[in-house]
């Protein structure tokens, strides 16, 4: 477990806390999901609710990757958030864990592709793209997307990417810009 050596206890606690904080904030968006799903179900487009909000749920991973800049931090960040969510009785039961790992690993791939060197627009965009690809592949099976009509598949894919790019890319960038300017990060990784 060589990768584990570079993690401090405070890093583990930090990404777990961020995962829980974000989860607590997202709980407040459940109503958006519920209303959209109820409204779109009669026309068979309920998946749009999921597609629109998915970027939000993938944020902890992308942020953890950005904040800690450690190998595996995006994956672990999202997995921890998913573990906590599962124990709090999320809607998706045990598949939350699988989704968590895949979402986190999807985000990680973006950082891997940019060699853990681009903590900027390039890294975040790459991460948004890889997260979209990995999670979409998973939903082809899990949510039966492979049986959908092609136009809908394309629509879902585009909406998902936009959500990923907006929440995981733009919003994450705005958040990390605030963090960079606040000078609080420097002091975190030297204890």
């Amino acid at each position: 477990m060589k990768w584990a050596k570079s993690w401090y206890l405070s890093d583990v606690i930090l990404i777990a806390l961020i995962g829980i904080f974000f989860g607590a904030i997202f709980m407040g968006t459940n109503y958006v999901y519920d209303v959209l799903t109820a409204a779109l179900a009669p026309v068979g487009l309920a998946g749009l609710a999921n597609e629109l909000l998915l970027g939000l749920w993938c944020m902890p991973g992308m942020l953890a990757g950005y904040l800690l800049r450690l190998k595996g931090s995006a994956t672990l960040g999202e997995l921890l958030a998913a573990t906590v969510e599962m124990f709090f009785g999320g809607q998706w039961g045990i598949s939350t864990l699988i989704s968590g790992v895949l979402q986190g690993f999807g985000s990680e791939l973006g950082y891997i592709a940019t060699r853990y060197k681009h903590y900027d627009w390039l890294g975040l965009t790459a991460s948004a793209i890889t997260t979209t690809l990995v999670t979409f592949a998973w939903d082809l099976a899990k949510n039966g997307y492979f049986k959908l009509q092609f136009w809908l598949l394309v629509l879902y894919f585009i909406v998902r990417f936009i959500s990923m790019f907006f929440f995981g890319g733009v919003l994450t960038k705005l958040i990390t810009d605030l963090l960079d300017r606040s000078h609080v990060l420097k002091s975190t990784h030297n204890n």
């Binding site: 401090y8 206890l9 405070s10 890093d11 606690i13 930090l14 806390l17 961020i18 904080f21 974000f22 904030i25 997202f26 407040g28 968006t29 939000l56 944020m59 942020l63 904040l67 929440f167 919003l171 705005l174 958040i175 810009d177 605030l178 963090l179 606040s182 609080v184 990060l185 975190t188 204890n191």
Partner: peptide, 25 residues
């Protein structure tokens, strides 16, 4: 839930608490 400040504040608190907890442990 789309305000960067909300998440920024949450992360600041997380950083603070994570250090307190790690020291306490």
């Amino acid at each position: 839930f789309w305000s960067p400040q909300l998440y920024f504040k949450a992360i600041l608190v997380s950083i603070n608490w994570s250090q307190n907890l790690a020291q306490a442990m």
